[in-house]
């Protein structure tokens, strides 16, 4: 008897579907997502520390900006690293999402959820929102000598912009709350004993980070003298 071929009879209501494979395998692609995501999350936490300077007042904020831009060639090197990490994350994520969308051509008419969190199911969507946010955020504040306190206040005190920032930061919080735990599982570096604490820590860290980030547009919106 002939060996059954892999993928034989792959028909759903008469239609054969091509399967698009991202990179070497789904597991390798997920590992790329986890590793690049870890790098990006590390940057987000560093960025958070910088932003926290703004809460200490105008002088602290300007001192932080001056210090950052005094790093010399280190700064463009870091920017290039971030760009590579982001590109890896976005391209691999897009390919995986396309692959996953094909894996169930006929959706369930009735589907209930047992364990999956909302944030885990929203990963592609929250990722897309963060990408759109970066397309606005980076051109708005990337200046050769760092953003001035006035630029921050004027930009974020516009209600439309502040709302956009708050929604995007909510997406970032959601993305991190799943991603910060998921990356350990994907890279296989978690002992079952630490699984529950790690999940809780991921949620707490992302909520804290989201809260501290959101405070900035909120303050700029309601307090005319912010950073003056």
């Amino acid at each position: 008897m002939a060996e059954p071929e892999a993928g034989q009879g792959r028909q759903m209501e008469g239609r054969a579907r091509p399967v698009r494979l991202p990179f070497a395998s789904t597991v390798f692609s997920q590992a790329l997502m986890a590793a690049s995501g870890a790098g990006l999350a590390l940057f987000v936490l560093l960025h958070l520390l910088g932003n926290a300077a703004a809460y200490l007042g105008r002088a602290a904020f300007l001192a932080y900006a001056r210090h950052l831009h005094g790093l010399g060639p280190l700064l463009p090197a870091m920017e290039l690293c971030l760009l590579l990490l982001a590109a890896t994350h976005v391209v691999t994520g897009t390919m995986l999402t396309l692959h996953n969308l094909q894996s169930r051509p006929l959706p369930y008419r009735v589907k209930a959820i047992r364990a999956a969190s909302l944030s885990s199911r929203l990963m592609p969507l929250s990722g897309l929102v963060i990408l759109l946010f970066l397309a606005v955020h980076v051109p708005a504040f990337r200046r050769p000598a760092g953003p001035s306190a006035e630029l921050v206040r004027i930009t974020l005190s516009r209600p439309g912009m502040a709302t956009f920032y708050l929604l995007s930061l909510a997406a970032l919080t959601s993305h991190l709350s799943h991603g910060l735990w998921s990356l350990f599982q994907t890279l296989g570096i978690v002992a079952p004993r630490y699984d529950q604490p790690l999940r809780r820590a991921a949620v707490i860290v992302s909520l804290l980070a989201g809260g501290v980030f959101m405070l900035l547009p909120l303050l700029a919106l309601v307090w005319p003298d912010f950073l003056r």
Partner: peptide, 22 residues
């Protein structure tokens, strides 16, 4: 085994935990 699963058209794991619960 991973490459066979990919070939068959199964999706990638997103760690939703639905499998474990079901």
């Amino acid at each position: 085994m991973v490459s066979a699963a990919d070939r068959e058209g199964f999706g990638a794991c997103g760690n939703h935990r639905e499998c474990e619960a079901a």
